[in-house]
Structures are given as structure tokens and as C-alpha cells.
Amino acid sequence: MNIKYGIIGLGGIAQVFAGALNTIPDAELTAVASGNRERAEAFSKKFEASKIYDSYIDLIHDKEVDVVYVALTHNFHYDIVKMCLENGKAVLCEKPLAINKKDAEELIALSRKNKVLLMEAMWTRCLPSFQKAKEWVDSGKIGDVRLIDAKFCFNAPYDPKHRLFNPRLAGGSLYDTGVYVIEFTTGILGEKPETVSGFATIAETGVDDFAVINMSFKSGALAMLSCGTRAHVNKDAGIYGTNGRIVVYEFFSSKKCELYDNNNNLVESFEDYCQDGFVYQIRHFNKLFEKGKLESDIIPLEDTANCADVFDKLMNQWGIVGNI
């Protein structure tokens, strides 16, 4: 059967998603919704959606739509996802699902109560290179993990109205790119952090624009993470163990990872040649939907809630919670 998707929020990430969706044989784009009719019509024409809605709730009420992909700015996620779950619609929501632990736990509880599939769109965890790196770690190829080093930083022009810097849109580097380094780490280790600390620089609008994050885990592993919107930084991630190390190149959209021993000898290399990494996320979600699952084993809801808990702790440390 074809799984019919509706998309709410038609910005840049929705275009990437829709392009990937149209390459999946068992999925189709049925409906799109935007407050801007002209944008919706252009999006619908480009990606061949059969229905256009001016109202988000009208799309959610469409009985032909099986899954809603939520691609709005972070500040709208909670309300829209809640409406979807209350109406029995499976949800794939752009990261972060929620910007605090309270909201994340409420949505997760509602998903389980109503028996509706919910997944945060942490597409990087679905990439074969991530899965290969995790397989190497889980099988003990590098011994006990002692350190994970991951960075996701880019240089964006400062614009106080842009979603990256606008507190009304839940802007800031932590929500936009920090979520990736945090969930890369917890995904590789398979555990939540015991302690979290960090430093951040604050933009004129009151949101964080660059941050370093340190985490410790019960297993003994440590993490050194960075996120930012004001400078380009190398995005290769390192996983260091007692018997070797793993390099995940361009971890955010990785197509390659390598395994080295303690003498810096290359032991194994993995490379994926797929041009659009979003397809792995969509295929994974489709399998969950077809099997009647309520959550992902690759991106479990507990990890999503734990990441939101890290948000809370860091925002409190930085003293900017009241600005969001």
C-alpha cells in the first residue's frame, strides 16, 4: 500500500523531505498546508501534492492522510503534534520534537495513550554510516568508549528576525544544531547523560549563538560537543575507545566512517553512495507505520525526552530560559 503523507510547514527542510519522499515507491505526498496560499500552490506544483490547505487543522482532519510531517519552526511543534496525536494521525516531527522536557513527555504520553506512532525526525541516526559506527561500538571493536567529540557549527548572517536568532521562533544554536550532536552521542552510547554542563555566547536577541557542551555517562564515557551559528567548524565526529577509534566523516550527513586501531592503522572502512540521506528515515518510518509500531527502535522516544532534558539543564545554566 502507499502511505499517504501530509506536510505542515513548507520551508527549506520540507522541500528536501518532499523531494526524497517522491522517490519512495510505497509513499506519496497527498496534501500540504501553509498559511501562505501562494507558497502552498508553488510547493504543491513542484512536488505533485494533490491537495492544498490554508489551515493546518484541515489537513490533520483529512481522512486520506496517514502521516503528518511537521516542518514548522520549533515553537509550533508542541501544539501541532498534539493536535495530530489527538486526531489519531501518525507524526514525523522535525527536530527537536519539543524544546523542553515537560512538553516532550506530554507528547510522548499522548502518543502512547492514543496508540499513535510518533517519531522525531533525527534522520542522521538512520544513515548507514551511523548504523555501521554504532555496530562497531556495540561489538566492542574499539573497546570501551571513553570520549565522543562531535561538532555542528556553521556561519549564518545575523538577522534578528530569522528563525535562528528570533526567540519567538525558539531560535538558537542548541535547538537547531545542538540537538544533532547530543542525539548522535546518546545514540552511539545507548544511554542518557548523568551530568551536563556548558558555556554559550548569547546573541543580541537573547538566544545562544555558539555553545560548547560537556556530558558524562554511567559507562565512563565523556562527550565534548559544540554547536553554533556564527562560524564554520569541521563536522567530522570522533569516537575514541580503549582499543581504537572511529571517525564518522561529516557526521550530520555522513556517507563514510572508518575504524582505526590503537596504532592508527585503518582496520575497516564503510562508505554509502546514496545521494539523499532522507530516504533512509522515510523508509524506516514507513516500516514502523506498516507494522503498527508506536515508536522507533533507532530513535526511541526516551532519547527524545532525554535530549529535551539536556536543553532544560543548559538553558538554566545559561540563564536564557525566560527568553524562549
Rank of each mutant, 00 (worst) to 15 (best):
I3W: 04
Y5M: 02
I7M: 04
I13C: 03
V16Y: 02
A20R: 06
T23M: 02
T23C: 06
A33K: 06
N36G: 12
R37Y: 07
E38C: 04
K45V: 09
K45T: 15
S50N: 07
S50M: 01
K51G: 05
D54E: 15
S55H: 09
I60D: 10
H61Q: 08
D66F: 02
T73E: 10
H74C: 12
M83A: 15
M83T: 11
K89E: 14
K89S: 13
E94Y: 07
I99E: 04
K101H: 13
A104P: 08
S111L: 04
R112W: 10
M119Q: 14
E120P: 07
M122S: 14
M122R: 01
W123H: 04
L127M: 03
P128V: 05
K134L: 06
G143T: 14
D149W: 00
A150D: 06
N155I: 09
P157M: 05
N166L: 12
G171P: 07
T177G: 03
G178Q: 09
V181I: 13
I188E: 02
K192D: 12
T195C: 10
A200D: 14
T201Q: 12
I202W: 05
I202A: 11
D208V: 04
D209K: 03
F210Y: 14
A211S: 15
I213F: 08
N214H: 14
A223I: 12
A223Y: 08
A231K: 15
A231F: 11
A237T: 13
I239W: 01
Y240W: 02
R245S: 15
I246C: 07
E250G: 03
F251Y: 12
F252I: 10
F252D: 03
E258C: 02
L259M: 03
D261C: 05
N265E: 13
V267K: 06
S269H: 01
S269L: 00
E290V: 10
K291A: 15
G292L: 10
E302N: 14
D303T: 10
N306D: 15
V310L: 10
D312W: 05
W318L: 14
I324S: 11
I324Q: 14
